[in-house]
Amino acid sequence: MAATLVIERAGPLVSIQDAGRFGYLAHGISASGPMDAGAFKRAGVLAGSGGAAGIEFSMLGLDLLVAEGEAVMGWDGGTFEVSVNGRTQSWPSSVLLAAGDRLTISAGTGGNYGYLRFGGEIDVPLVMGSRATSMRARIGGLDGRALRAGDMLGVTQHITNRRAALGLDPRADAGAAAIEGGNDGPRVKPEGSSVFGVRLGNDAAPKTVSGGPIRFVWGLHAEVFGTELREKFVTSAFRISSMMDRMGVRLRDEAAVFAEARILSLVSDPVVVGDIQILGDGTPIVLGRDHQPTGGYPRIGTIISADLDRFFQLRPNAELVFAPVGLDHAQALLRSGIA
């Protein structure tokens, strides 16, 4: 089972991603990879995890047409509207699409990023060991750029039996005939059923993008800001601004926490995803997966790994507060998986 897909509409920042291109920071290249890594994985499980790469889309989603062949597709991340040939589907879910089928994903009620994964691999070359698009380095994915209308993507041979993907008995020839018997609609996996025999546990349940403080550990330059300002930082609310992309998310500092701070320009040091940098004009910016490898602005803290996905799904205008935690706590959260 292989397929050729045609992108008919792409919102901004739709790109091919895989888990990330790690190990090249010393060459000036950050890892990229999905902004919401957990949702990316869950969409992969829904699709049967046949390929390491998937499509990340932003709030406006994308439309695609299966031009040839067939492929299982799974989706998750945020809450989007999804339909196949005009028929509404559930979110998250998975479906087998065949030639002529149209998938439409459009803005929904929550989140910034969603993921479309496939039963097979997206046919783009590995660049430095990864298919992830780095828009900053202009490598990976499709020619190192965002996807746009008219792009064609191949999805390679499925590694798993497609009937199993649909929860059908592979011996039931009648069912198979129905699948091959035309284009009268998608075959939606019955909700709550197992996918490829893997029961979806809590891990795969959709995570709500809701409140709760964003936890962080104090950073490299926390001392630069002084006790009073640090106290204000953890007791004031910030808002997500509309200036966000895969490189960083600017925050609105409505409580003017950093208005009076004297921001020094520092010698550049390596930065990491989740770093909370304070720009020269006092604007806080949280670094995303396509971050610069180094930065010279002071960093008051770094969002813990367990909260990164949730943070990047916060929509513009969402209010958030930051809560400091210790390193032991941050790492224990990861190990326990209860994040």
Binding site: F22, G23, L25, S268, D269, Q331, R335
Partner: peptide, 21 residues
């Protein structure tokens, strides 16, 4: 898992699921 020399510093990345800080 990664050593990154920079102008005046060196970044060391590790897997927190395997190693404690």
């Amino acid at each position: 898992i990664e050593v990154v020399p920079s102008l005046v510093s060196v970044l060391l990345r590790y897997d927190p699921l395997i190693s404690r800080h």
